[in-house]
Design a protein around this nucleic acid. Structure first.
Lengths: 105, 105
DNA sequence: AATATTGTTCGTAATATTGCGAACAATTTA
DNA sequence: TAAATTGTTCGCAATATTACGAACAATATT
């Protein structure tokens, strides 16, 4: 993976994480044994359509996945991409430590 | 820090990280011993005004800081907030591991 | 003092994001 | 088959983001 693509991938993940509601959704998903849309919606003070939209963005970024369990929809964290995201962020945070002799105080 | 404020803080950091150019800027800052605006601008294929705008967003999020060294401006990663961001992301990624018996496959 | 250098700010345009209610689709239940 | 349940999609409005050139401000240099 080139550095440019790497930057694009981490930016895509970061963008998806860039809204409090979506962070809340991810935490919620992680701490439940079931995670139907209705459970998520119930937990949040926003409209159904808006929840659906946030879920779509998380899904498009690859951070979660949805599975139809008619008539409900079950959402889960996408573990593979979650791991990938974690490693990219950790790499970024470790890479961006100012070098000795640098301009940081 | 309540969970809500925590979510807002990490979302704010994530939002600032949510653009490839800003990731590139951070990596660049981390791997230089000097980091004037001109050096950053030189490295990127975009207009001066746009670079300035991205730097402003990183600064507003607290991830970098700027210091006037007339007539230049020296930019650096804000180490304290960088550490804070790292810990918040690590905590998030560790928190959001699907529990056994959860719905993740 | 005039000119050059370095970045920021302003104004503008195009596009994206956020949020909502209403309409819709798909399945389940009565 | 009719009605209920569960979510998504559509259409809209308000706001934010991204990007640029031009104008501007501040200091340094001649």
């Amino acid at each position: 993976m080139t550095k440019e693509l790497n930057n694009e991938q981490i930016a895509r993940f970061a963008k998806a994480l860039g809204h409090p509601t979506r962070i809340a959704i991810l935490r919620f998903l992680a701490n439940r044994t079931t995670c139907y849309f209705g459970d998520i919606f119930e937990e949040l003070p926003i409209a159904k359509a808006t929840v659906s939209q946030h879920l779509k963005e998380l899904k498009d970024a690859g951070l979660i996945q949805g599975e139809i369990e008619a008539p409900k929809v079950k959402y889960c964290i996408n573990r593979d991409n979650w791991k990938l995201a974690k490693s990219l962020f950790v790499e970024l945070f470790d890479d961006c430590v100012c070098k000795k002799g640098g301009c940081c105080k």
